[in-house]
Amino acid sequence: MFEARLVQGSLLKKVQEALKDIVQEASWDCTSSGLSLQAMDGSHVSLVQLTLRADGFEKYRCDRNLAMGINMGSMSKILKCAGNDDVITLKAEDTSDRLELMFESPKGEKISNYEMKLMDLDCEQLGIPDQEYSCSIKMPSHEFARICRDLSQIGECVVITCTKDGVQFSAKGDMGSGTVKMSQNLGAEKEDDQVTIEMTEPVQLTFAIKYLNMFTKATSLSGSVCLSMSNDVPLVVEYKVEDMGHIKYFLAPKIED
């Protein structure tokens, strides 16, 4: 038996919104330590990894490890039926091919029950090496989203350059070019407004903005975002999911032909 009850159900709605544009089908892995998911987009350019720890749920039970094959479009449709203030409970029997979703309004006067068919998925799991990165940039998530949106009007690629002075995002295209530079700003009153840069070596990498824009669907989950980069390896874009986990997006860089 698997059962997970999340009082702040809106978190699950936001997580789903942050995943659905990148992956069409994914295996949600349930173990006694929590829920996790790892999936690549169809073109093998980006990968998303979600962790929601068991202790972040008000109730969590998982007697046997389960891999629930979920059509992300169906999951989105059903989670849209939950109100933002609803408590969400997920339930599945060990051998069932269905996931039950229950939405309770805060005062308990409305209870909705949905059942979603699960799929048999044969998912490749990738081993992501633990690695130290040359640059880690923490910045307000809305600023990152704004930069990606703005520069996507200029060109299809963004060059991210990180030095000890700051991080620069540049794009160029047929109509011209654009550059946005963010400098370290430790004096901001709110922690989420701070820009911090930890660097051991300068980094410059080029990425397809299209994917970065998809990652920014996670913006509402967290006030800040962390970009981790080293030369010649995939970028990591990480959003915390409150104190219960994270969504990490990996994106392969573009390379000179």
């Binding site: 690549m40 093998h44 350019v45 980006s46 990968l47 490749e124 799991q125 990738l126 081993g127 992501i128 090496p129 690629c157 080029t206 397809a208 390896v233 995939p234 990996f250 392969a252 860089p253 573009k254 390379i255 000179e256 032909d257």
Partner: peptide, 14 residues
């Protein structure tokens, strides 16, 4: 023109 690299060049299938 830079070419899009593949994630499978970095991560092993486990």
């Amino acid at each position: 023109v830079p070419k899009q690299n593949d994630l499978l060049n970095y991560f092993q299938v486990s």
